[in-house]
Design a binder for these strands. Structure first.
Length: 322
DNA sequence: GCCGTGGTCCCAGACTTTGT
DNA sequence: ACAAAGTCTGGGACCACGGC
């Protein structure tokens, strides 16, 4: 069943059927009703590819995730994708989700652009010198970035990681901590630096002692650092990811150690385990990223967004409050 | 080089409504 | 009744690209 068939049955032109499908006001209500009835009766669905052929855009957006971030473990990805899908669903847009490893990253993007499958990208896992950004800018292809870097020559949406780093330390100070262990993420990703900047600003402001160790955001690295760090030296631990906080949590449980602990990301498990965390509102990040990209594709003006974060204080710190 | 594919978009023109 | 304005509709160009 094609639009032509619907038009023939309804006794109108193809253009009129197209107007009804696209909610154009310039169709008489009787005509509209008649056409809608026929569409319903014959279970007609417009051909998505024919549509994109004429419009020269697919109404499909692409998200490429690094293969190692696609773990089944509780992660950032689920709420982020839920947020994006929520927007896309209500705007008749589709999502292509693909994975790549860092080595052939750019090639993967080029292939998707060349195939005309996607009209725009949400860029994740931003690096400081990101060849994807240079490439997409050079061909003027629509995209929006999750996160920022020093160049910032793009439209981005970003939870305020620096504020998150600051809030974590501030909270530990509030409950009386003076010697804090900060377990940072791996060196390289921009978020690592942003969170650390916030931590150092708070250190300055509250005049507390902060020791910095570098993990890699994973549970295992949190566990290993906790094991090596001699936790008795500290009166509070702040991790740059919830996963690392879970690793520290497990180690402390094994060794019967009790210290205030904060994570970062506020994943659902933190609620269950009672771990205080920095809530980045990841769902909102996904939702707004999709919304911004939609506007960019439609050639509307868009401004970058910095989303405020908040602290979700729970038992892991509150029970130490003096 | 032309044709066919299945949609959308633009424009011209027919039709309808409104005001005098 | 007539003119003007607004509404509705159809025709055809257009999109990329494979097949002939």
């Amino acid at each position: 069943m094609k639009i032509k068939d619907i038009a023939k049955i309804a006794g109108v032109s193809v253009a009129t059927v197209s107007r009804v499908i696209n909610n154009s006001p310039k169709v008489r209500p009787e005509t509209r009703e008649k056409i809608l009835k026929i569409i319903e009766e014959y279970k007609y669905e417009p051909d998505h590819f024919a549509k994109s052929l004429r419009k020269r855009q697919s109404n499909i957006i692409g998200i490429l995730l690094l293969r190692n971030s696609l773990s089944t473990e509780d992660s950032y990805t689920n709420p982020f994708l839920s947020g994006a899908l929520e927007y896309l669903f209500h705007h008749d847009l589709k999502l292509v989700l693909d994975s790549c490893d860092t080595r052939n990253n750019l090639l993967h993007y080029k292939k998707l652009i060349k195939s005309k499958l996607v009209s725009g990208f949400i860029i994740t896992d931003l690096r400081e010198d990101d060849e994807r950004i240079e490439y997409l800018n050079s061909i003027n292809f629509p995209y929006v970035v999750i996160g920022r870097n020093k160049k910032n020559n793009f439209i981005y949406i970003d939870p305020d990681n620096e504020q998150g780093g600051y809030l974590g330390v501030e909270h530990l100070v509030e409950i009386g901590c003076k010697k804090i262990l900060y377990i940072s993420g791996s060196k390289g990703p921009v978020v690592t630096e942003q969170r650390l900047t916030g931590v150092l600003k708070a250190k300055e402001k509250f005049n507390v002692e902060i020791t910095i160790k570098y993990g890699d955001f994973s549970k295992e690295s949190g566990y290993m650092i906790a094991k090596k760090a001699k936790l008795e030296k500290y009166d509070g631990i702040f991790c740059a990811s919830d996963l690392m906080a879970y690793g520290v949590f497990n180690y402390m449980k094994e060794k019967n150690i009790e210290k205030p602990l904060i994570g970062f990301d506020d994943l659902p498990s933190s609620k269950i385990l009672g771990i205080t965390s920095i809530n980045q509102k990841i769902f909102d990040v996904g939702f707004n990223a999709a919304k911004m990209l939609h506007k960019i594709i439609n050639k509307e003006k868009v401004k970058s967004m910095l989303l405020p974060v908040e602290i979700s204080a729970r038992e892991s710190t509150l029970k130490f409050k003096k």
